[in-house]
Amino acid sequence: MSTPNPRRQLRPTDVKRLNRTWRRTTEARLALILESVTGPFNIGSIFRTAAAFGVDTVWLAGNATPPTNPKAQKTALGTDRLVTWHEAVPAPEAVKAAKADGYRVIAVELTGDATPLHETPLTGDICLVVGSEDHGCSPALLESCDAVAYIPQVGRVGSFNVSIAAAIAIAESRRQEWTR
């Protein structure tokens, strides 16, 4: 009698079953604030990652591109309908809205007081903040956040693409919850 190959790709039903198992172990709410992220492909990618990791809410801030942009849709593949999102407002207003909704707001940025992402407590209801592709988070936004974390890098490049930084931060937040 032969045993099934454990390395075969899962069938769609198996994937749904696996994802359901992870959903049952996920209790914390996760949200995002995207400040002046204008690249439509970045927006689409962030929304796709947000939907995959169960992000509840996305606040757009500054001049962020909405996920309804046709170019953003090419990357998002319709996942923007799976995540509640709000039209762009000034960044401090988005932070205020997130805090009023019970989130602890943590910017992902390189600042003098930032802690390494993996050492930053990201459990409970967390709202992660990422800033524009060119300038990062604005000073007003950083002042209104509860904490700042950075992603350690050992290579010779000084920063990540904003959609990659958001994905790393979202994944780290879920990892911390799942390993508690």
Rank of each mutant, 00 (worst) to 15 (best):
G112Y: 05
A88N: 02
E93D: 15
A167I: 03
A167N: 04
D101E: 13
S144P: 01
T179Y: 15
T120E: 12
H118D: 14
P90G: 04
E35H: 07
R104G: 03
T179E: 15
L30F: 09
E119C: 13
Q9R: 12
T111P: 01
Y150A: 01
E109S: 01
R20F: 06
I106N: 00
R11A: 14
E119S: 14
G136M: 00
K16E: 15
P152G: 11
R180S: 14
D101Q: 10
H86T: 06
V95N: 08
P139L: 08
T179S: 14
F160M: 04
A107H: 03
G124N: 07
P6R: 00
G158C: 05
G102P: 09
F53N: 02
G112M: 02
R7K: 14
E177I: 08
R8A: 14
P70D: 05
V15F: 08
S138W: 06
N161G: 05
H86P: 01
S36T: 14
A61Y: 08
R11W: 07
I164P: 06
K74F: 00
V105W: 08
R175D: 13
P92K: 03
L18S: 12
V58M: 06
A167W: 01
N5C: 11
G39S: 12
A171G: 13
T13K: 08
S2P: 15
P40S: 06
A165C: 06
Y103Q: 05
V58P: 04
T13Y: 10
T26K: 04
W178G: 07
D146P: 07
G102W: 12
E35I: 04
T111S: 05
K99D: 10
R104D: 07
R174G: 04
A31E: 05
A52V: 03
G62M: 08
A149M: 07
L77H: 06
R104Q: 11
R23I: 11
G54D: 13
R81C: 01
R174Q: 07
L10D: 10
S144M: 01
D101K: 12
N19G: 07
S132Y: 03
R180C: 13
L60P: 02
G54F: 13
S173Q: 04
D134K: 08
L18E: 15
T68G: 13
V162F: 08
T115Q: 13
S163P: 02
A140R: 07
L34R: 06
R174W: 11
E177C: 03
E27C: 09
A31D: 02
T3R: 12
T3F: 12
P90C: 03
I170P: 07
V162M: 09
R24C: 11
I43H: 01
S159F: 00
G39T: 05
D101W: 09
T38S: 12
E109C: 00
C145T: 12
I106D: 01
I46G: 10
E87R: 10
K99G: 10
R156H: 14
C137L: 11
N19L: 15
G136I: 00
I43R: 01
N5D: 15
P66A: 03
N69W: 00
N42V: 10
P70H: 09
T179K: 09
E109M: 00
I106E: 00
A166W: 00
V148T: 14
H118R: 11
A165I: 09
R11T: 12
R7T: 10
W22G: 03
R29D: 10
L117M: 12
A52G: 11
K96S: 15
H135W: 11
N63I: 08
F160H: 09
H135I: 04
